[in-house]
Every structure is written in structure tokens, then in C-alpha cells.
């Protein structure tokens, strides 16, 4: 699998995968993607912040129709995929969920993974996603 990210700025590291957020030096608010000012207190002192790689499903759905461009379906055509918000405690992150619908429920534990994606120019890439983990794993 290629390890060219769709957007390098989203990642603090790729191996192991960790997402790059930001944290306000004044009020502590955590933002994803990393912001240049704080959406809560409007402060401009924001620091790089590595997000937790585990959380729980806050809400989810299944994308059952092919989104319009610039989304490009993978080779072999569009297949429905799950999407959700993952509660990392300090922030919720929207991401694709590498799971079948029957594996998903609000509160289900998940961990960050890389998932194959199609770049803007059609080139193979990876994006951030979350996958279910067994309790205690």
C-alpha cells in the first residue's frame, strides 16, 4: 500500500499513524485539523498537538451513493462505505470507518488506521480512518 497521504498536514506521523491537531495555549481547546487561531477564544497562540489514536464512535452512517467529483471512486467502482465522528475525548474527528454496518454502534471502541484512497489526480493515496477494536485490545 502506498503511504502518500491525501493531505500530509493531517498527520503527525504515518508509522504509527497519528493525527495532527492543534491546542490553544490560552484556553486549551483542541482542534482538528490544526488551526492557526482558536475557534473558541479567538486566541492566536496555538500549538501543534498530536491527537489520541483511540476513541469511540459518536455517530455514524453509511454512504450508499457515489459522491459527486472531486471525489473519485476506486478502481472497480464505488462501493458503499461507513463514515462517522469518533470521540477522542478532547475533540471529535470525522473519518471513514473501516467496518461493516453491523459492527457499528454509538460508543463502539475504534482505533486510527490508514485506508487506501484516491488522490485528486487519481493517484493512489492513503487517508485517515478508524477501525473497530475488541474491548480491552
Amino acid at each position: 500500500m502506498t503511504t502518500t497521504p491525501l493531505e500530509p498536514a493531517l498527520f503527525a506521523s504515518l508509522d504509527p499513524p497519528r493525527l495532527a491537531g492543534s491546542r490553544c495555549a490560552d484556553c486549551g481547546t483542541v482542534t482538528f485539523p490544526a488551526a492557526t487561531s482558536c475557534p473558541r477564544c479567538t486566541g492566536q497562540q496555538v500549538l501543534a498537538h498530536v491527537l489520541p489514536d483511540r476513541g469511540t464512535v459518536w455517530s455514524w452512517t453509511v454512504q450508499r451513493f457515489c459522491p459527486k467529483p472531486p471525489y473519485l471512486p476506486p478502481d472497480g467502482g464505488f462501493r458503499p462505505f461507513a463514515v462517522g465522528y469518533v470521540d477522542l475525548g478532547e475533540v471529535l474527528v470525522e473519518a471513514r470507518l473501516v467496518a461493516e454496518p453491523e459492527q457499528l454502534s454509538i460508543g463502539a471502541p475504534v482505533r486510527l488506521v490508514l485506508e487506501p484512497a484516491v488522490g485528486v489526480d487519481g493517484a493512489p493515496a492513503v487517508g485517515h480512518a478508524f477501525a473497530p477494536v475488541a474491548e480491552g485490545a
Partner: peptide
């Protein structure tokens, strides 16, 4: 927003409405 957001298949209003409804 970055191009990545649409390329990931996340920039779809109906997804949002569904996730808000489920929650």
C-alpha cells in the same frame, strides 16, 4: 477546506444529516 475532505468522500451534506439524526 482542503481538497482532501472531498476526495475522502466526506463532503456530502446527506451524511451530516444522517449522523446528526442518529445521534
Amino acid at each position: 477546506l482542503g481538497e482532501w475532505y472531498a476526495s475522502s468522500g466526506l463532503m456530502v451534506t446527506t451524511q451530516y444529516f444522517a449522523m446528526r439524526t442518529r445521534r
